[in-house]
Simulated scan of single mutants.
Amino acid sequence: MKKYLVQFKPFLIFVSIFFLTYIVLTLIYKFYLNSYQAEDLDGVTMMCGRNSEQLLKLLNYDIIIQKSSQNPWQEIILNGKYIARITEGCNAVSVMILFVSFVAAFSASFKKTFLFIILGLLSIYVLNVIRISLLIVLVYNFPQYTQFLHGTFFPLMIYGYVFILWIFWINRFSKYAK
Protein backbone atom coordinates (compact mmCIF):
# COMPACT_ATOMS: atom_id res chain seq x y z
CA MET A 1 0.00 0.00 0.00
CA LYS A 2 2.83 2.38 0.90
CA LYS A 3 4.34 1.77 -2.53
CA TYR A 4 1.14 3.01 -4.21
CA LEU A 5 0.87 6.04 -1.95
CA VAL A 6 4.41 7.05 -2.88
CA GLN A 7 3.80 6.31 -6.56
CA PHE A 8 0.57 8.32 -6.73
CA LYS A 9 1.57 11.05 -4.27
CA PRO A 10 1.49 13.93 -6.84
CA PHE A 11 -1.96 12.88 -8.03
CA LEU A 12 -3.29 12.49 -4.48
CA ILE A 13 -1.92 15.92 -3.51
CA PHE A 14 -3.53 17.48 -6.59
CA VAL A 15 -6.91 15.85 -5.90
CA SER A 16 -6.80 16.79 -2.21
CA ILE A 17 -5.93 20.43 -2.82
CA PHE A 18 -8.42 20.71 -5.67
CA PHE A 19 -11.37 19.29 -3.71
CA LEU A 20 -10.49 21.09 -0.48
CA THR A 21 -10.28 24.43 -2.31
CA TYR A 22 -13.44 23.70 -4.28
CA ILE A 23 -15.43 22.73 -1.18
CA VAL A 24 -14.23 25.73 0.87
CA LEU A 25 -14.93 28.24 -1.91
CA THR A 26 -18.32 26.67 -2.67
CA LEU A 27 -19.31 26.88 1.00
CA ILE A 28 -18.18 30.52 1.18
CA TYR A 29 -20.22 31.28 -1.94
CA LYS A 30 -23.23 29.42 -0.52
CA PHE A 31 -23.04 31.49 2.69
CA TYR A 32 -22.76 34.63 0.57
CA LEU A 33 -25.89 33.68 -1.40
CA ASN A 34 -27.76 32.78 1.78
CA SER A 35 -27.18 36.31 3.08
CA TYR A 36 -29.72 37.50 0.49
CA GLN A 37 -33.48 37.15 0.81
CA ALA A 38 -35.23 34.68 -1.53
CA GLU A 39 -36.62 37.46 -3.72
CA ASP A 40 -33.31 39.36 -3.88
CA LEU A 41 -30.46 38.91 -6.30
CA ASP A 42 -26.84 38.80 -5.19
CA GLY A 43 -24.45 41.67 -5.85
CA VAL A 44 -22.20 39.82 -8.30
CA THR A 45 -25.14 38.96 -10.56
CA MET A 46 -26.46 42.52 -10.34
CA MET A 47 -23.02 43.83 -11.30
CA CYS A 48 -22.84 41.44 -14.30
CA GLY A 49 -26.20 42.73 -15.50
CA ARG A 50 -25.22 46.35 -14.96
CA ASN A 51 -21.91 45.90 -16.81
CA SER A 52 -23.62 44.07 -19.68
CA GLU A 53 -26.12 46.91 -19.97
CA GLN A 54 -23.28 49.48 -19.96
CA LEU A 55 -21.42 47.58 -22.68
CA LEU A 56 -24.49 47.35 -24.90
CA LYS A 57 -25.33 51.03 -24.35
CA LEU A 58 -21.74 51.88 -25.29
CA LEU A 59 -22.40 50.00 -28.54
CA ASN A 60 -25.60 52.08 -29.05
CA TYR A 61 -28.16 49.41 -28.21
CA ASP A 62 -31.49 50.42 -26.69
CA ILE A 63 -31.15 48.14 -23.67
CA ILE A 64 -32.65 48.05 -20.20
CA ILE A 65 -31.56 45.45 -17.66
CA GLN A 66 -33.57 45.85 -14.48
CA LYS A 67 -34.23 43.90 -11.33
CA SER A 68 -37.56 42.09 -11.40
CA SER A 69 -39.85 43.56 -8.77
CA GLN A 70 -41.02 40.17 -7.48
CA ASN A 71 -38.43 37.61 -8.61
CA PRO A 72 -34.71 36.94 -8.02
CA TRP A 73 -33.53 37.88 -11.50
CA GLN A 74 -32.91 40.79 -13.83
CA GLU A 75 -35.17 41.35 -16.82
CA ILE A 76 -33.53 42.12 -20.16
CA ILE A 77 -35.40 44.46 -22.50
CA LEU A 78 -33.84 45.19 -25.89
CA ASN A 79 -35.55 47.67 -28.24
CA GLY A 80 -38.64 47.56 -26.02
CA LYS A 81 -38.94 43.77 -26.24
CA TYR A 82 -38.45 41.40 -23.29
CA ILE A 83 -35.63 39.04 -24.30
CA ALA A 84 -34.63 36.96 -21.28
CA ARG A 85 -33.52 37.18 -17.68
CA ILE A 86 -30.23 37.10 -15.81
CA THR A 87 -30.19 34.79 -12.80
CA GLU A 88 -27.56 33.92 -10.22
CA GLY A 89 -26.23 31.13 -12.44
CA CYS A 90 -25.29 33.65 -15.13
CA ASN A 91 -22.59 35.34 -13.07
CA ALA A 92 -19.90 32.67 -13.75
CA VAL A 93 -18.92 32.40 -10.08
CA SER A 94 -19.14 28.59 -10.23
CA VAL A 95 -16.74 28.66 -13.20
CA MET A 96 -14.43 30.97 -11.26
CA ILE A 97 -14.45 28.55 -8.31
CA LEU A 98 -13.42 25.70 -10.63
CA PHE A 99 -10.68 27.88 -12.11
CA VAL A 100 -9.24 28.85 -8.72
CA SER A 101 -9.41 25.27 -7.41
CA PHE A 102 -7.48 23.91 -10.38
CA VAL A 103 -4.82 26.63 -10.31
CA ALA A 104 -4.38 26.18 -6.56
CA ALA A 105 -3.97 22.43 -7.02
CA PHE A 106 -1.17 23.05 -9.54
CA SER A 107 0.24 25.97 -7.59
CA ALA A 108 3.64 27.53 -8.07
CA SER A 109 5.06 30.22 -5.81
CA PHE A 110 2.46 32.15 -3.84
CA LYS A 111 3.08 35.35 -5.82
CA LYS A 112 2.73 33.71 -9.25
CA THR A 113 -0.31 31.72 -8.17
CA PHE A 114 -2.02 34.71 -6.58
CA LEU A 115 -1.37 37.01 -9.57
CA PHE A 116 -2.52 34.38 -12.07
CA ILE A 117 -5.71 33.78 -10.07
CA ILE A 118 -6.50 37.51 -9.83
CA LEU A 119 -5.82 38.15 -13.53
CA GLY A 120 -7.69 34.98 -14.49
CA LEU A 121 -10.74 35.93 -12.42
CA LEU A 122 -10.80 39.42 -13.92
CA SER A 123 -10.54 38.05 -17.45
CA ILE A 124 -13.26 35.45 -16.78
CA TYR A 125 -15.53 38.20 -15.44
CA VAL A 126 -14.92 40.43 -18.49
CA LEU A 127 -15.48 37.50 -20.86
CA ASN A 128 -18.70 36.67 -19.01
CA VAL A 129 -20.01 40.23 -19.42
CA ILE A 130 -19.16 40.07 -23.12
CA ARG A 131 -20.82 36.63 -23.29
CA ILE A 132 -24.04 37.90 -21.69
CA SER A 133 -24.10 40.96 -23.95
CA LEU A 134 -23.50 38.93 -27.08
CA LEU A 135 -26.12 36.39 -26.04
CA ILE A 136 -28.69 39.17 -25.60
CA VAL A 137 -28.06 40.54 -29.10
CA LEU A 138 -28.01 37.10 -30.73
CA VAL A 139 -31.19 35.92 -28.98
CA TYR A 140 -32.91 39.12 -30.07
CA ASN A 141 -31.84 38.67 -33.70
CA PHE A 142 -32.00 34.86 -33.88
CA PRO A 143 -34.59 33.66 -31.34
CA GLN A 144 -34.82 30.28 -33.06
CA TYR A 145 -31.26 29.52 -31.88
CA THR A 146 -31.81 30.49 -28.23
CA GLN A 147 -31.49 26.94 -26.88
CA PHE A 148 -28.28 26.26 -28.81
CA LEU A 149 -26.73 29.63 -27.94
CA HIS A 150 -27.60 29.53 -24.25
CA GLY A 151 -27.22 25.81 -23.66
CA THR A 152 -24.26 24.88 -25.85
CA PHE A 153 -22.32 27.65 -27.57
CA PHE A 154 -21.88 30.13 -24.73
CA PRO A 155 -21.10 27.54 -22.00
CA LEU A 156 -18.53 26.09 -24.41
CA MET A 157 -17.11 29.58 -24.84
CA ILE A 158 -16.58 30.23 -21.12
CA TYR A 159 -15.46 26.70 -20.20
CA GLY A 160 -13.18 26.60 -23.24
CA TYR A 161 -11.55 29.84 -22.14
CA VAL A 162 -11.00 28.49 -18.62
CA PHE A 163 -9.52 25.30 -20.11
CA ILE A 164 -7.07 27.42 -22.15
CA LEU A 165 -6.11 29.33 -18.99
CA TRP A 166 -5.49 26.01 -17.20
CA ILE A 167 -3.28 24.72 -20.02
CA PHE A 168 -1.37 28.01 -20.06
CA TRP A 169 -0.93 27.83 -16.28
CA ILE A 170 0.33 24.24 -16.29
CA ASN A 171 2.75 24.80 -19.17
CA ARG A 172 4.13 28.16 -18.09
CA PHE A 173 3.88 28.70 -14.35
CA SER A 174 2.92 25.66 -12.31
CA LYS A 175 5.48 23.62 -10.42
CA TYR A 176 5.02 20.94 -13.11
CA ALA A 177 5.89 23.29 -16.00
CA LYS A 178 9.35 21.89 -16.52
Rank of each mutant, 00 (worst) to 15 (best):
N171I: 15
F154L: 11
L135I: 15
L122T: 11
S68N: 15
I77F: 06
V129D: 03
T152Q: 11
R131M: 09
V162P: 00
F18G: 11
C48S: 03
S123A: 11
F14V: 14
T21K: 08
I13M: 09
L78G: 05
M47D: 04
I17K: 04
I86C: 00
L55A: 08
N60Q: 15
P155H: 14
F110H: 10
K2M: 03
G160K: 09
K2C: 02
D40M: 06
L20G: 05
K3P: 01
L122W: 08
L41H: 02
Q144V: 09
G49S: 03
T87K: 05
N51V: 02
C90D: 09
N128A: 06
L58Q: 08
I117E: 10
A92V: 12
Q7G: 07
Y29M: 13
V100Y: 00
F168N: 12
F153K: 05
W166K: 10
S101I: 15
E53P: 03
Q7V: 10
G49C: 04
Y29V: 15
S35N: 08
I76T: 07
S16C: 13
I117H: 00
N34E: 05
E39R: 06
E75A: 08
L138Y: 13
G80K: 05
T26A: 14
L12T: 10
L121K: 13
F19H: 04
A38D: 05
I77H: 06
I23N: 06
V93H: 04
V6K: 06
L134I: 15
S16L: 15
S69M: 08
Y4T: 04
I97F: 00
C48D: 05
L165I: 15
G89Q: 00
S69L: 10
R85K: 14
E39M: 08
P72M: 01
Y36M: 04
A104L: 15
M96V: 12
Y161H: 05
I77W: 01
A177Y: 07
I17D: 01
N51Y: 05
D40H: 06
Q54W: 00
K111A: 12
L98T: 14
R172S: 12
F168S: 14
I64G: 02
A177E: 06
R172Y: 11
S94W: 11
L59C: 12
I170H: 05
L41I: 11
I170V: 12
Q54F: 00
L20H: 04
D62E: 12
L156C: 13
I28L: 13
Q54A: 10
Q54R: 09
V93C: 09
N128Y: 05
L27K: 08
A108L: 01
A92H: 07
Q144P: 02
L119P: 00
S109H: 10
F31Y: 14
K178S: 07
